[in-house]
Amino acid sequence: MQETFWQKRLRDVAAVLVVGIFMFPLFWWALTSFKPTSAIFDKDGIVWFNFKPTLVNYQVTMLGKSRAELAIESGNTFGVGGASSYDSRQTIIDSLIVAVGATALTVLLAVLASYALSRMRFYGRQAYLNWILSQRFMPPIAIIVPVVFMFHYMSLLDTRLGLIIVDTLINLPIAVLLMKSFYDDVPVDVDEAAMIDGASRLQIFWRVVLPMVKGGVAATAVLCFIFSWTEFLLSLFLTNSIRTLPVKITTFVTSTGSEWGFIAALGTTAVIPSFIFILLVQKQLVRGLTLGSLKE
């Protein structure tokens, strides 16, 4: 069907509108992070661009300056409150370690487990798959109490390793099921061709099948990373001194008021690592890698 001029325009407008709706909160958040407190809390109206941009929020959260220091520097003591620590540098490092560690561990286990589930026929395979799926039904809160006890006895409370393990635990079922569906897309004939060509099972996996599901590995990794990066509940219960980003941000809501400027600055910063990570793997994310080995 030939699209008319107006149909095309309408579609473009709709696309821009949808992107706009989804991007606006991010934009507003980033904008807020450059606003002075007075612009954030203007009682007379919404402040769009008529404010004097400031890096104060970033100086506090990313450079570790205390607000007292800043107040003395600028000579403006408006809004100097509580003595909480707003320095979030360690938080970002901890979050990165946990997210990268959990993603790496999940992907490593998932690519191996799901290959076996996709290719090997063994007794109870379907039951096993259903059991994996059932793990996704379980809300994380249901396991918090036992996990806290177990981690206590294993001295994993308040450790990065502990968070890595628990994030892997939560991510693994979906990662395995996802990877299995990618393996299932690669015809078994490819394995058999490689087998006839003289490859061992491990060589088939490593040299033939795994490279053909690169896109799937990337997609799985992105999902795991985003989950770990944004995971709140388990981190809250399992850590004290180590604070991942979502937990840290909640501490900015204090009894003396919410530090919206700092929240916005840290929130904006928090987008960057995920963004970089997705940029790195986005080429792999593009589907169609398995095309070419198959009939079409």
């Binding site: 015809p187 004939d189 490819v190 058999e192 061709a193 490689a194 033939v208 490279p211 053909m212 690169k214 890698l289 398995t290 095309l291 070419g292 080995s293 198959l294 009939k295």
Partner: peptide, 10 residues
């Protein structure tokens, strides 16, 4: 030689 060729796509 397989029906769907079974080439190594990568």
């Amino acid at each position: 030689v397989f029906q769907n060729y079974a080439l190594y796509a990568h």
